[in-house]
């Protein structure tokens, strides 16, 4: 079954980047506005999903050669490890340190250990969602 999907492919190429940007934006703005690790991760995952649906798995895999199971594992590791780091400085488990830093471009920015933790969450979500869909679709096809 060959369907003419030129429009879909062209639009996808553009839209995926918009969605990806939106996902990252969501992830970062989660500190003060709606967003955060879960929704950011889910949006990123759905962008990837769109790619997989438009092109076939092999093509996308050439571009994004990740094993998403490992990404999920990495996410959990990141979250747990960042939680354990404060223990090295004799703080309690999961103490989320924060501080203000003067950064170029961004100006005075508040950075927090939460960001690492949330990155772990986002990576886990991306990894798990893509893994689930990929395994099923590989099996189905």
């Amino acid at each position: 079954m060959k369907i003419n999907d030129v429009i879909l492919r062209t639009v996808t190429k553009i839209i995926v980047f918009i969605i990806l940007t939106f996902g990252v934006e969501l992830f970062i703005s989660g500190h003060n506005d709606p967003g955060g690790g879960f929704s950011g991760g889910l949006v990123l995952a759905s962008a990837l999903l769109l790619l997989y649906m438009t092109y076939d798995i092999e093509t996308v895999h050439k571009g994004i050669p990740f094993d998403f199971k490992k990404i999920a594992g990495l996410g959990v590791f990141l979250a747990v490890a960042s939680s354990a780091v404060p223990m090295l400085f004799s703080n309690q488990f999961l103490t989320q340190e924060k501080g203000d830093f003067a950064l170029p471009v961004f100006g005075l920015t508040e950075l927090s250990m939460v960001l690492v933790f949330e990155a772990g969450v986002a990576l886990t979500v991306v990894g798990v969602v893509v893994t689930i869909l990929l395994t099923i679709s590989e099996d189905v096809s």
Binding site: F38, L42, V125, V128, V129, I132
Partner: peptide, 9 residues
């Protein structure tokens, strides 16, 4: 929020 993600899984 956590429940939504878990129920998806």
């Amino acid at each position: 929020l956590t429940a939504i993600v878990i129920s998806f899984a």
